[in-house]
Design a protein around this nucleic acid. Structure first.
Length: 931
DNA sequence: GACATCACG
DNA sequence: GACGTACGTGATGTCC
């Protein structure tokens, strides 16, 4: 949303850095109780914002507001004078981690938050103040920094928030002895010891004002310096002319910065109570949370008291498999429960009869409270049978009844004051849910590692234990066996199960102790707490709902495909002159290139002929056989992967298919779906799309598909700051046609589908880290021509080049890139030599775009359950930029409106995108119709 | 278990 | 100047 700024409007600019430093020095070094994160400055900052917001009433209230921060690192003034601000004391160590939190705080108050690399906050405020004045509006700069006084006048004033004193033209004259327009002249002469601006030695503000008033301005003074009567003063000005002129450029603020936003974007917005209170509670500001809740008329969220601080250092306790306890009775379990309640947290792991959490049975539970102290509670292990062929239905000796164990553990597992720690908690949560336990609150070491180490390695327990605990866990293979003779965990003897299961909980607890403090050191606490952890229950619910799949439809299709394939196979064999396995690329290659002598060489390290679709398509013009093979392959894929395999995934109890989402599946922040993968159900080909007819809604319901339109290109337009693209999206243009029009000089009316198609390929190529070769292959055009397209694209949209170069540079410097929401994707290969460098570069360019899009839909998914709680709608699937719902017909319209709004506003308030997100909706009795 | 292929965003 | 290249996934069948 953005409104025009003009007459009658009033812009407030808050000097964020001044707020931070004042807050930091005004308060004792407070730390967050739960983890020791320093938060004193953030607390003071929030208090100041709260008081500011509270006092914003009456005729003087702002219509627009922003908090302006200094961007970290050097500014253009350092290029002018390398000693600029060189004698500033270094930033205190405990203040550093608080800088990003003050940005978070600002956004939590729903106030615009701006900073620009290479510039100081003062320049941004100067530019905005000038813009506000030129537009005929008012501007109040909330700061007492004298460097800003040059801006006063013509509707611009300053406000010293501490003294609640307005500074107008008279105030400036009082301070500098000259009007605002001559302040820089005085500063250039007087210098500034704080900012290390040299000025003229021996001349202070008083003398400077005297001189400027006498000679009119600095230039005249310097030109006529010889006329000065006092000899010392005269000599100083003559000797130091260059230094004085340089000082003026240092203190002169830049009123003409190019900003990627307008004042209109800074419109005052009310805080969203949920977001603001959530942030304050996360910071554990008890008093402020309450005060703010009162002010907003909301119930304050509960901030749990953290339990006593963690125990022995991790290295101090060696792993000891013999030290683990087997809990066999209620009497033995009770002391563990007592200790968990004292401690306030526990690592939990469940053992089950398999991997399909919708089907398998609970076999046992392990717990760990302190490193090295873990227990396993066997519950449904089977007794070894005499013949040992089929096992026994009898429970093994030495186990407490499942019902009793659950009855005792349930209060602990559901206790809001006890944190349950797990590795891949979604799995355990789903299992426990089937036994009537809704586990919460939780932490998940797998997701912590994903937030910390995304891109470096996978996040399975074995990997993490090896890497971070220097300990190889007991392998499961020897216990279960492999292949046909594999057994399920309930058949494992309890004596073998105890060390294995208890060790998993032990490892999980140790990883948690290690990762928890690392989260905020790496500044990914927010990612973990707002993008990862809250998604667990959302995904668990979606997976448990599943989607209805009609077996008969699939079965009919399968038969039809089989028939067609048989026909094609005969044709292919006839064309080849002999029968062969059409499904074997090796045999096909030999037929095509050796026996039939078609053009096209060997490829790949294995020496086999490449027979991919692109190659066969090229050959299809010369011969019928490759064309038939392409048809056959398409059918074969559809039949084996979809119509056949999908049927095996229909749950016998629910009649639905329950996929499993792997939250840590993709390095970019995307999720992966497996068993079955429901993120790659065919849609591009007409025949393939019919598979989706088998995905249906329950009677009386419809499937609802909501998908983001061009989300990655929109994000690219935002992050690379491409005004033409932003405008095109704002105008609702066909973005590929617009690109074509810009690049090829074709007007939109003269657009042909082919030109548009080429532009579309380029747009996608850009997102992927374009190369001439890649584009040439994709468009099947000469490489030089493709390179020409790319060059023209970069000429037309120079910001894209800049973005790409800057991203790669960032990756080289930091070893990671990040999304707009702070997710870090590590790029360990970025320094590699040879072709691997190319891969790493393109991945680094793509990751922030793909990752930001992934973060956006995650935020939407996390908010969705509450948003649609009043509706009979259920969220079923996520396909990267699409959410699929099942909803009774009567509630369709309201569900569309609600869910669409959640999705379109998902970036707010954490990130304000310059480009609106648009969501398209479709509905139908099945997925083919809905999409 | 590696490889090739192909389904999706 | 040459290198090989679109980004991110999962499932299937062949072949060793």
């Amino acid at each position: 949303m953005s409104t025009e700024f003009g007459k009658g409007c009033h812009l407030h600019l808050i000097d964020g850095s001044a707020f931070i430093f004042r807050a930091y020095h005004a308060l004792p070094p407070l730390t967050r109780k739960s983890d020791g994160l320093p938060i004193g400055a953030v607390a003071g900052f929030c208090n100041m914002l709260q008081r500011y917001v509270e006092g914003n009433t009456g005729p003087d209230a702002p219509t627009h507001v922003a908090v302006i921060f200094d961007h970290k690192g050097k500014t253009f003034r350092n290029d002018l004078y390398d000693l600029y601000k060189a004698n500033r004391p270094p930033t205190p160590e405990d203040l550093r981690p608080q800088f990003p939190l003050t940005r978070d705080a600002t956004r939590a108050f729903n106030i615009a938050c701006k900073e620009v690399e290479g510039y100081e906050a003062d320049d941004i405020m100067a530019t905005l103040a000038c813009q506000a004045r030129d537009a005929g509006g008012r501007c109040t700069i909330i700061s007492s920094d004298k460097d800003l006084m040059q801006l006063v006048g013509g509707g611009v004033e300053m406000l010293d928030a501490m003294k609640n004193k307005r500074i107008d033209r008279d105030g400036v004259i009082e301070k500098f002895g000259v009007g605002p327009e001559r302040v820089v002249d005085v500063q250039a002469l007087a210098g500034d010891s704080v900012d290390n601006v040299p000025g003229a030695p021996g001349i202070g503000i008083k003398t400077a004002a005297l001189l400027i008033n006498e000679y009119g301005d600095l230039e005249s003074l310097l030109d006529r310096a010889a006329e000065i009567k006092q000899p010392k003063r005269r000599q100083t000005l003559i000797d130091n002319r260059a230094q004085i002129e340089m000082s003026k450029t240092l203190v002169q603020l830049d009123c003409e910065m190019q900003l990627d936003f307008t004042i209109g974007d800074l419109e005052v917005r009310d805080p969203e109570p949920e977001v603001l209170l959530g942030f304050l509670a996360e910071m554990e500001f008890r008093t402020l949370t309450k005060r703010m809740a009162d002010q907003l008329g909301q119930e304050p969220p509960v901030i749990t008291e953290p339990a006593a601080v963690a125990a022995a250092p991790i290295e101090a306790v060696p792993f000891d498999r013999d030290a683990y306890t087997c809990v066999t009775s209620a009497e033995e379990l009770q002391p563990w429960i007592d200790r968990i309640q004292q401690r306030g947290w526990v690592a939990v792991d469940t053992e089950t009869t398999g991997l399909d959490s919708m089907v398998v049975d609970l076999v046992g539970i392990s717990l760990c409270i302190e490193p090295g102290e873990a227990c396993y509670i066997p519950l449904t292990h089977r007794a070894a049978a005499a013949d040992d062929l089929f096992g026994s239905d009898e429970l093994a000796e030495g186990q407490m009844p499942l019902a009793i164990a659950l009855e005792m553990l349930k209060p602990v597992l559901q206790d809001p004051a006890i944190l349950k720690i797990g590795q891949n908690m979604k799995y355990d949560a789903k299992i426990l849910h089937r036994y009537g336990v809704d586990i919460a609150p939780i932490d998940d070491t797998m997701l912590m590692s994903y937030a910390l180490h995304g891109g470096l390695h996978n996040h399975g327990m074995d990997t993490l234990s090896d890497r971070y605990l220097d300990h190889t866990p007991i392998p499961i293979k020897p216990l279960l066996g492999a292949g046909k003779s594999a057994i399920t965990f309930d058949k494992v003897p309890i004596s073998d199960a105890v060390p294995y299961a208890a060790e998993d909980a032990d490892i999980t607890l140790r990883l948690w102790q290690l990762f928890k403090p690392k989260l905020h050191l790496s500044q990914v606490t927010t990612v973990y707490e707002t993008l990862e952890r809250p998604l667990i229950p959302v995904l668990a619910t979606m997976e448990m709902h599943g989607i209805k799949v009609d077996r008969d439809t699939l079965s009919r299709m399968s038969n039809a495909f089989a028939q067609k394939m048989a026909g094609l196979e005969d044709e292919i064999h006839a064309l080849a002159g002999r029968p062969f396995n059409v499904g074997s690329p090796k045999q096909l290659g030999e037929i095509l290139f050796d026996e039939m002598g078609l053009e096209g060489g060997k490829k790949g390290k294995t020496g086999a002929y490449a027979t991919g679709a692109d190659i066969l398509e090229d050959l299809a013009g010369t011969h019928d056989l490759p064309a038939r093979v392409l048809d056959w392959r398409q059918l074969s894929k559809l039949k084996s992967t979809y119509t056949d395999a999908l049927q095996d995934h229909i749950n016998a109890d629910t009649g639905r298919v329950h996929t499993s989402y792997l939250q840590t599946g993709a390095n970019t922040g995307r999720m992966a779906s497996s068993d079955p993968n429901l993120q790659n159900i065919p849609v591009r080909s007409e025949e393939g799309r019919r598979i989706r007819e088998a995905f249906i809604a329950e009677p009386g319901n419809v499937l609802l598909s909501l998908d983001y339109s061009q989300i990655e290109l929109r994000i690219l337009a935002h992050v690379a700051g491409i005004d033409t693209l932003k405008q095109a999206f704002a105008d609702g243009l066909d973005i590929h046609a617009m690109t074509a029009s810009e690049m090829f000089g074709v007007s939109m009316d003269e657009m042909t589908p082919d030109i548009r198609r080429q532009a579309k390929a380029i747009n996608f190529g850009v997102i992927y880290g374009i190369s001439g070769f890649g584009l040439a292959r994709n468009l099947r055009i000469p490489r030089a021509e493709a390179q020409g397209f790319i060059n023209r694209y970069f000429e037309r949209f120079p910001g894209i080049r800049t973005y790409m170069d800057a991203t790669v540079e960032f990756a080289k410097e930091h070893g990671y890139v990040q999304t707009l929401f702070g997710r870090r994707i590590h790029t360990p290969e970025i320094a590699a030599k040879g072709p691997r460098a190319g891969f790493a570069k393109r991945a680094a360019i793509n990751a922030p775009i793909q990752g930001t899009a992934a973060d956006v839909i995650r935020r939407a998914m996390i908010r969705m359950p509450d948003a649609i709680a009043h509706l009979p709608a259920r969220m079923l699937l996520q396909v990267h930029d699409e959410l699929l719902f099942e909803v009774p017909e009567a509630a369709v319209e309201e569900t569309i409106a609600t869910a669409k709004s959640v999705m379109e506003n998902a970036a707010d308030p954490a990130v304000h995108l310059d480009v609106k997100l648009i969501v398209d909706a479709g509905r139908g009795a099945n997925w083919a119709e809905a999409h």
